[in-house]
Nucleic acid binder design. Structure first.
Length: 585
RNA sequence: GGUCCCGUGGUGAAGUCUGGAGUUCACGCCGGCCUGUCAAGCCGGAGGUCGCGGGUUCAAAUCCCGUCGGGACCGCCA
């Protein structure tokens, strides 16, 4: 991380911070405060205390016996001096100096911590770490992560300010809206039976700020979604949320790119190059994902041509046939593992998985090889580039599913850990306006949300071929994680009604559900669009963490609890009564 | 709602498949020794409801069922 070294004034309790001391301080009488990180005793008349504060660690030499144990909070006075020859510690930033003739005053004693306060705690049960999060956060790794997060926030704010964005805070108590993620509800005390919702995002408010003429809005916004938690998902998370007026797609991407690249540079010290773009269609075709991880190859191979006239029933008539070449895996994948891969494919919704091992002389080893003609075999090897010793996996299904399943297998088999390799940012553009259809009504379902602008080139097909219409919607992806998404919004009432009608939402229903949001657009709404970047995910990847809990000070477990506070917890019956609530056992 | 993995002195791990005395290793903790260490070293010691409950068995950390907690994933996350 680029060391941002704010000048820390002395306080009434200390003259310096431990980690700031260097050769230039030699000779100075200093007073330090911090925690005893480690103690090395050499009898009555020599002991080394490693003193730790937020800035780092410094070695103090104590000549008299003092009972200062691990994690005791102490004040140490002494003179900075050069370490004797041969005792310099190159692994320590302060390793050239030490505090000599240190006098120790114990400010507070400490029980032995339930786990070590050093890198060894990386292996400690995470539930225990979360129960004692205040001790976990003392550790260098967590301090580094929280500071990286602060650096990201700071860089993003600076970027937004320099681009003319205005920070506006939007409400946390908002109306419940029918679409989207499950909401957390907050009961109204004054109107029993009525509820606020906590915002999934400030979406509606930020668009109203455009109607209001703010021109450019941003916020480091807390968002809350009552959906199951994952490595990259918490109930509450933070987004850099922006909205801009009088812009097209390129303008929004440029604004966000600036902020994200600035943030990345603030953490890593290196500014990534311009973020490349890929269309959604191409991402699905080549990587089988709308959040492709571009750090590795193993691109999907379209085998529709190869098997266009195949006799193999499982392939014939499929919407798409996608192949995946796994180099050198023929010998390492036994029957058991191949069965597991097949189960994985099925759990992802595929009808099955075809596996083919390439043996000597281009012979195919597979339960279904007998269905392939020689020409198909040659074309398959040619298309995939598979050679002896390689494994080829093939998924045949409806186009989207075939791509998705093959893409997930690609990730399963080839994806490096998130902290390895380069940072591969990519804009995924031209998302479809609709994804899939409602099982009962057959109506198309919105891809991003119902207020997303259709691609102008596709507008004429809106009613006739809605599923082929692209949206002015885009995602930012980093190393296979979706960092955020956004779109140009519909600002025209007539077009909005056309989209609603396609979604099966009548004027009356639209007015009932979104009236407070749509009516303002009758009073002059500028063309506008926006984006939101998931801060937790960005920081996690930049910090080399595989889980966003590692970059959140006080996260929840996967089941949504907080082992430190015990939340969620039951409340007093009187509390419930005041809110007009009753618990159903 | 579902699939899978994990739970053993304060911490981390081995032991579980193939039942046989709470066994082992490292760290930490407590005490002693030690004047240049830096995850100090040496000696000694304490510390356990093998997550919990039930079952099978002469015998359960180990096998079976249930349950709780943690994690990964599917569904879900416009």
């Amino acid at each position: 991380m680029t060391p941002r070294t704010p000048s820390i004034r002395p306080t009434s309790l200390r003259t310096h911070r431990c980690g700031d001391l260097r050769r230039e301080h030699i000779g100075q009488l200093v007073r330090l405060t911090g925690w005893v990180a480690r103690r090395r005793e050499h009898g009555e008349h020599l002991a080394f205390l490693d003193l730790r504060d937020a800035s780092g660690v410094v070695q103090c030499v104590v000549a008299e016996h003092i009972d200062a144990r691990s994690e005791y909070v102490v004040s140490i006075s002494g003179t900075v001096r050069a370490r004797p020859d041969g005792t310099i510690n190159a692994n320590l930033a302060t390793g050239e100096i030490e505090i000599g003739e240190a006098e120790v005053e114990i400010l507070g004693t400490a029980e032995p911590p339930p786990f070590p306060i050093d890198q060894r705690a990386d292996a400690v049960d995470e539930g225990l770490r979360l129960e004692y999060r205040y001790l976990d956060l003392r550790r260098e790794r967590m301090q580094r992560n929280l500071r990286a997060r602060a650096a990201v926030n700071s860089a993003m704010r600076a970027s937004m300010e320099s681009q003319g964005f205005v920070e506006v805070e939007t409400p946390l108590l908002v109306p419940s809206t029918p679409e989207g993620a499950r909401e957390f509800l907050v009961p109204s005390r004054k109107e029993h039976g009525a509820f606020y919702a906590l915002p999934q995002s400030p979406q509606l408010f930020k668009q109203l700020l455009m109607v209001a003429g703010l021109d450019r809005y941003y916020q480091l916004a807390r968002c809350l979604r009552d959906e199951d938690l994952r490595a990259d998902r918490q109930y509450e998370f933070t987004q850099l949320d922006i909205e801009m007026s009088f812009v097209g797609v390129d303008d929004v991407l440029a604004a966000i790119s600036d902020a994200v690249l600035d943030a990345a540079e603030a953490v890593t010290g290196t500014r990534p190059g311009e973020i490349r773009r890929i269309t959604w269609r191409e991402a699905m075709e080549r990587f089988g994902s709308d959040k492709p991880d571009l750090r590795f190859g193993m691109e999907l191979v379209d085998l529709g041509e190869v098997f266009s006239a195949t006799a193999f029933k499982a392939f014939a008539g499929s919407g798409a046939i996608k192949g995946l070449r796994v180099e050198g895996a023929a010998s390492t994948y036994g029957r058991n593992q191949l069965d597991k891969l097949t189960d994985r494919a099925k759990s992802l919704g595929a009808k099955g998985l075809v596996w083919i091992k390439v043996a000597a002389d281009a012979a195919l080893e597979s339960p279904v090889a007998k269905f392939f003609s020689d020409a198909e075999r040659d074309a398959l090897l040619d298309a995939t580039g598979a050679k002896e010793g390689d494994l080829v996996l093939i998924v045949a299904d409806e186009w989207h599913r075939a791509c998705e399943v093959a893409g997930t297998l690609r990730n399963d088999l080839g994806r490096p850990p998130v902290h390895e390799g380069p940072y591969e940012y990519v804009w995924v553009v031209d998302f479809p306006l609709f994804v899939g259809q409602d099982a009962t009504t057959g109506r198309p379902l919105p891809g991003h949300h119902a207020f997303c602008m259709p691609h102008p080139d596709d507008l004429e097909r809106l009613e006739d071929e809605p599923m082929s219409v692209r949206a002015l919607a885009y995602d930012l992806v980093l190393n296979g994680w979706e960092l955020g998404s956004g779109s140009i919004r519909i600002h025209d009432g007539a077009l909005q009604r056309r989209v609603f009608h396609l979604l099966g939402i009548s004027d009356e229903e639209a007015d009932r559900k979104f009236g407070f949001f749509l009516n303002p657009f009758r009073y002059g709404a500028p063309p506008h669009g926006g984006f939101a970047v998931g801060i937790d995910r960005l920081v996690a990847i930049l910090a080399g963490e595989e889980n966003i809990r590692e970059v959140i000070a006080f996260p929840k477990t996967q089941s949504g609890s907080d082992p430190m506070t015990g939340s969620p917890i039951a409340v007093e019956p009187s509390h419930l009564a005041e809110l007009g609530l009753k618990i159903i056992p």
